[in-house]
Each structure stands twice: as C-alpha cells, then as structure tokens.
C-alpha cells in the first residue's frame, strides 16, 4: 500500500476521522472506567453484584460448565466461580492498593531523596536504587516472604517492597527533570530561597505525576500479588483470592478449563483497565 503523505503530523491529524467519544472520554477509557467501577462495587458491597455464598459447596454440581445456572461454571467443590471472583475482588484490590502505598511511599523517599539531595548522596542512593532494580521483584518478594511467613500481610509487604525500585526510578527521573527545568531556574532567579523553591516550585510538579504512577502501580501490584498467590505464597485456599483460585484450577485444567480461565481473565482486565485509566490521566496531566 503506497500512501502519499503531503505533510507532517499536524495535517495528518486534521484529516483523521474523529475518535468515538462519550462525554469527551475515549471509548476505551470509558470501558475501563466501567470495569473499574464494577470492581469497586464488588470490593465494597459484593452482595450487590453476586447473590450467592462464595464458600457454599455443592458436590452434586461440581465441575459444571458455564451455563445458565452458573455463568462462569463451578469448581471441584461445586462452588460458583462468578460469586467467588466477585468476593475475591476486595482482597485483590486491597492487596493492590496497600502494596502500591508501600511501593510508592518507599519510592518517594528514595527517589526524591536521591534527586534533590547533594550530589554525593545521589550517587549512593542512585546506585542503591539500581541494585534494588537488578533484583527480580519475585526474588525480593520470595526472600521477604520467607522472612515474614506467608499470608496476606506478608504478601502486601513483599509486593510493596518488591516494587519500590520501580517507583523510585520513575520518581527520581521525574524529580531530576523538574529540578533542571527552566521554571525552577526562573524561580531561583526571582530570588526565592532554596526552601521556597523546593516546596513551592519543585514539590507540586513532582507530586502530580505520582497519581499516575500509583494508578499504574495498583494494576501491576495486583498482577504480582496474584502470581505469588499462584505460587502458593499468598492467600491460602479456600480463599477466593484470584491467584489462589487459578492455582487450584490448574489441577483440573484438562477437565474444567473455566476454573482457570475466569479468575485469570479478571486479573488481566483489572490490570488492563487500571493501565488504561493511568495512561489517560497521564495524557491529561501532561497536557498532550
């Protein structure tokens, strides 16, 4: 296909058909918001979207394929997969948010500390961040879990500390960019004290993108936490934690694919919708 292009992007942009938008929000973002809303409802009041009991077993209905009675099917004990997924949302979101709070908090201390401190400190802390980054998150989490024991609490700490390096790198890069920005030099040139420059000029510009980093981080934390649960290091069965359910379904992969399919689908959709929302916020805040 040969497509003649007469001019640069601005012209091409004008010629493009308009995007599908709902109230000024792109279609994909609207879908992501809808899914996030569903998750939120499921986490706060699961009874609204699922009426059953996530722990009620029904041996007669074990391994039912998805159908009218059980839209996502049932597992080996006859528990309804859909109900369990809805009730598991709370745990997954809680782990995701709490772990991100630890990760971003630690990242903030390390990243800001390193970028705004004198050069010698930056040299040391910058190296430390790089070293932490070298460690695969799984390895850090594994070591922490073997120190703290397994369970939800240790899982949150492990995922949080495991992702500190990621957010520290992002925050440090952002802080360095702001620190060397022209408006900071201008603020200095106006004769402000260095504390005033730090608090009034640098801090707001560094903190704003953190919402974006946190939104993206929650999605990632959900992924990490569920993979650790999948490996048997997080919530113990019969908890409806998604990773734990998936690990359970793995044993019946050949006979009942739906036990593995749906929890994984929800993990993917959660991560996906949070990523889409995070990107959207990013574009908005950067004014692109």
């Amino acid at each position: 296909m040969t497509q003649t292009q007469y001019s640069l992007s601005s012209v091409r942009q004008d010629l493009r058909p308009r995007r599908v938008r709902l109230w000024g929000i792109p279609f994909g973002v609207a879908l992501a918001l809808a899914f996030a809303l569903f998750l939120l409802v499921a986490a706060v009041a699961p009874q609204i979207v699922a009426w059953g009991d996530p722990f009620a077993t029904d041996p007669a209905a074990a391994f039912s394929a998805p159908g009218a009675a059980h839209i996502f099917g049932t597992d080996h004990a006859g528990r309804d997969i859909y109900t369990r997924i809805v009730f598991g949302a709370q745990q997954s979101l809680l782990i995701g948010v709490a772990a991100t709070a630890i990760g971003v908090g630690g990242g903030l201390i390390l990243g800001l500390g390193s970028a705004l401190a004198p050069r010698a400190v930056d040299l040391v802390v910058g190296r430390l961040i790089e070293v932490l980054f070298v460690f695969p998150t799984v390895l850090i989490a594994l070591i922490l879990i073997s120190i703290l024991g397994s369970g939800i609490g240790p899982l949150i700490v492990a995922v949080g500390l495991g992702t500190v390096a990621d957010s520290a790198r992002l925050i440090r890069a952002q802080a360095l960019k702001v620190k060397h920005g022209e408006f900071v030099a201008a603020s200095r040139a106006l004769g402000r004290s260095s504390t005033a420059v730090l608090l009034q000029t640098i801090a707001p510009n560094v903190i704003r993108p953190i919402f974006v980093i946190a939104t993206l981080g929650v999605g990632q934390a959900i992924l990490w936490a569920s993979s650790l649960s999948f490996l048997g290091l997080g919530a113990a069965p019969p908890s409806p934690e998604w990773g734990t359910m998936l690990a359970d379904g793995r044993n019946y992969l050949q006979v009942a694919w739906w036990i593995s399919l749906f929890p994984g689908l929800f993990i993917t959709l959660s991560a996906l919708s949070l990523t889409i929302i995070g990107r959207f916020l990013q574009q908005r805040t950067e004014g692109r």
Binding site: E130, T163, R169, L170, R172, A173
Partner: peptide
C-alpha cells in the same frame, strides 16, 4: 513490571535514558 511496571527511563548517568529522555 509487567508484571513489574515496565522499567522506564532512568535518570542515572551512564545507563542510556529510556523513553522520555531519549
């Protein structure tokens, strides 16, 4: 990342900067 959030642009000196800075 993915899992782990994608390693992004780093500010560290010798490591060539990733997305934004490049």
């Amino acid at each position: 990342m993915t899992q782990s959030s994608p390693p992004r642009a780093s500010g560290s000196e010798a490591v060539p900067a990733g997305t934004e800075t490049s």
